[in-house]
Design a protein around this nucleic acid. Structure first.
Lengths: 217, 217
DNA sequence: CGGGAATCTAGACGCTGTCAAGATCAGGCA
DNA sequence: TGCCTGATCTTGACAGCGTCTAGATTCCCG
């Protein structure tokens, strides 16, 4: 039986399969999100039996959550890079972070939609039922999400300590930035109109209004 | 055969069935959105055969879109009432509109999630294929969405003409408000923490920052 | 080299959305 | 009044899905 050969060495090929499944799932959520994501289809493409994913993910949602986790990690990286590249001024850094956030959504629409899919929140609060061996993916997911949010909080803190941003609970101010970015991204994804460049420009405009509210005039 | 009696008069009971299906579907999307919405289940509760919905909705998505349409209508009404009740000052009216938006989402989480479900956008741009008789529900949906947005634009226009809000394209300024409201609502729905009152208070805080950016200082 | 555990497969179940064909009904025309 | 026609709904079927259970395969280690 030509089972499939992971680099000719099926040594503990278990974890390799897990990551392969996730990688393929990440591919399959583009561009519309996890709506059509099918464990059977993922398994078929990877080359394993239709029930193989069940051994690594308690259910379809758990697989989607893993995909979302990958999304948050990539997004974290993208924002980090953007902030590093920006000039060392709080306003510009915060703006860069927001733009990176939105740009990530535009470039990875399906992944982004998966990250914020309602269905994830569902099983998250729905099932106290123990998952097979998934080592509670949802707390992991919240953690990754919080990690991204933390980036914004840090920028706000920095801006405040440098007397560029108004005082106030950093979390609140950061939330303005993330909520606004999130809202803009969603609206961009739902509409079909406009090039990426146009949308980024539009976003900068809108975010400028936000900055006006945050900065010490 | 006790077919079911719509007020004892099965006179053209067709359209009655359509609205019954929608009404039941609106019920079934709570609280987690259209993820688990099932045409068969809706049909069962309404008391018709499992394939009856197909005669009024091209597919599952079309039914969900109808639900979303109801959502936008109700939201429009809620915001209108809130604005009317607010004092006649642009800032307070805009704030009231945003709060009403968020409050609607908190009170009708499933409906709200359905309104902004990724899956809807999917078939929206995906299938040029003619629907059976659904009289293109998606353009109707965009229209209803735009109608809600129009409320915000109008408020901004009013504020600008009264020299309370900064100048600038009303659409851009309005988008700050809607995007921020949307983002806040989504974040509230995804987290489980916090009472409704707490969240509204938090939202007011955040929206205050936005107003600072919009108002002429 | 062989036994035991980890890993994956095979098959089945109930559910889903969707389609095609037939039954049933309403209302207009004789 | 009674049939006829078209609209309306039902029935049955099909493929696909997620998930469960039991069994086959593979790997590791003594």
């Amino acid at each position: 039986m030509p089972r499939k050969q992971p680099e000719d060495r099926p040594y503990h090929w278990g974890e390799k399969l897990r990551s392969d499944l996730i990688a393929e799932a990440v591919r399959q959520v583009e561009p519309w999100g996890m709506g059509r994501l099918s464990t059977r289809e993922v398994a078929k493409v990877v080359g394993v039996s239709h029930a193989a994913p069940n051994h690594y993910f308690a259910n379809r949602l758990a697989l989607a959550a893993a995909v979302a986790g990958v999304g948050f990690e990539r997004m974290y990286d993208a924002i980090t890079v953007a902030v590093t590249d920006a000039r060392n001024r709080p306003s510009e850094q915060l703006l860069a972070a927001c733009i990176a956030y939105i740009d990530f959504a535009l470039k990875n629409p399906g992944l982004y939609r998966t990250m914020y899919a309602a269905d994830l929140a569902e099983r998250l609060n729905d099932s106290p039922r123990g998952m097979r061996q998934g080592t509670d993916w949802f707390s992991n997911l919240s953690q990754l999400k919080a990690r991204v949010f933390g980036l914004f909080v840090e920028l706000v803190r920095d801006g405040q300590s440098r007397d560029v941003f108004r005082r106030g609970k950093p979390d609140d101010v950061a939330r303005v930035a993330t909520a606004l970015s999130h809202g803009l991204a969603r609206e961009f994804l739902d509409e079909e109109l406009g090039s990426r460049i146009d949308r980024i420009a539009h976003a900068k405009q809108v975010l400028g209004v936000m900055l006006t509210g945050i900065e010490i005039r």
